Computed example of a mutant assay.
Amino acid sequence: MTNNNEDLFDMEKQNAPKMKIKRKDGEPTPVFKGASWAALVIGVSAYLLGLYNAAMELNEQGYYFAILVFGLYSSVSLQKAVRDKEEGIPVTNIYYGISWLALIISILLMAIGLYNAGSIVLSEKGFYGMAFVLSIFAAITVQKNVRDTQRAREID
């Protein structure tokens, strides 16, 4: 049996107004921002940890590391170019085209490298492929969140 004072206290807590975090129009939620950063950290960390523990030569590890860095940079660059065009910020066609080409090349280099890697078992190939794709997607999402947050705060 509970005390009536405890019941009243619980009711007051439930009816108390919740503190709402003020968010600007168009700004991503803190949870979405956190999930994007978590996906980026998890993807890159898993990829790098896999490379560190891999039984491959240092030059091969360097190849896969360079592809990751190239893929992350090209994906962020493409997201920025696409967003700039959408917002009416001038973007040259050559930069826009190079951004697309760089991302496509990074994905192709990863696919070709994994396809031709005889020292890597199929499950590791899948691991590297998925960690790479997760990292690229997360980098694009983090860049979009940064841009959306910046834009929402400028409008105010």
Rank of each mutant, 00 (worst) to 15 (best):
4 N>H: 08
6 E>S: 14
8 L>A: 05
9 F>Q: 13
9 F>M: 09
10 D>H: 07
13 K>L: 15
13 K>T: 09
14 Q>C: 02
14 Q>V: 14
15 N>V: 15
15 N>D: 12
17 P>I: 02
18 K>Y: 06
20 K>H: 10
20 K>F: 00
20 K>A: 15
21 I>R: 06
22 K>G: 08
23 R>G: 00
23 R>M: 14
25 D>Y: 06
25 D>C: 03
26 G>R: 07
28 P>F: 02
30 P>V: 11
35 A>N: 10
35 A>C: 05
36 S>I: 02
38 A>W: 08
38 A>H: 08
38 A>Y: 14
39 A>F: 00
40 L>F: 13
42 I>N: 07
43 G>E: 04
45 S>T: 15
48 L>I: 06
49 L>Y: 08
49 L>K: 01
51 L>K: 06
55 A>C: 01
55 A>M: 05
55 A>K: 15
56 M>K: 02
57 E>K: 05
57 E>F: 03
59 N>I: 08
61 Q>A: 11
62 G>A: 06
63 Y>I: 09
64 Y>T: 03
64 Y>E: 01
66 A>V: 06
66 A>F: 04
66 A>E: 13
67 I>G: 04
68 L>N: 01
68 L>M: 15
69 V>A: 14
70 F>V: 02
71 G>C: 02
72 L>E: 11
73 Y>H: 01
73 Y>P: 00
73 Y>G: 07
74 S>L: 03
74 S>D: 08
75 S>H: 03
76 V>Y: 05
76 V>C: 06
79 Q>A: 12
81 A>Y: 03
84 D>S: 11
85 K>N: 08
86 E>N: 10
88 G>C: 05
88 G>V: 06
89 I>G: 05
90 P>Y: 07
90 P>N: 09
92 T>E: 14
93 N>L: 12
94 I>K: 09
96 Y>H: 12
97 G>C: 02
98 I>S: 08
100 W>G: 03
103 L>I: 01
105 I>V: 14
105 I>M: 07
107 I>K: 12
107 I>C: 05
108 L>T: 08
108 L>S: 11
110 M>F: 02
110 M>R: 00
112 I>R: 06
113 G>R: 00
113 G>L: 02
113 G>Q: 01
115 Y>M: 14
116 N>R: 10
116 N>L: 12
116 N>Q: 09
116 N>Y: 09
117 A>S: 15
117 A>Y: 02
119 S>N: 15
119 S>W: 10
119 S>T: 14
120 I>T: 11
120 I>L: 15
120 I>A: 07
122 L>Y: 00
122 L>E: 15
123 S>A: 09
124 E>G: 06
124 E>K: 15
125 K>H: 05
125 K>G: 00
130 M>T: 13
131 A>L: 04
132 F>W: 11
132 F>C: 10
134 L>Y: 00
135 S>W: 04
135 S>Q: 09
135 S>V: 09
136 I>R: 00
137 F>Y: 10
138 A>K: 04
140 I>A: 13
141 T>F: 07
141 T>R: 07
142 V>N: 10
143 Q>N: 12
143 Q>S: 14
146 V>F: 10
146 V>L: 11
148 D>I: 01
149 T>A: 10
149 T>H: 05
149 T>C: 01
150 Q>F: 15
150 Q>E: 13
150 Q>R: 13
151 R>S: 12
151 R>L: 08
153 R>I: 10
153 R>H: 12
154 E>M: 14
155 I>Y: 12
155 I>H: 09
156 D>C: 05
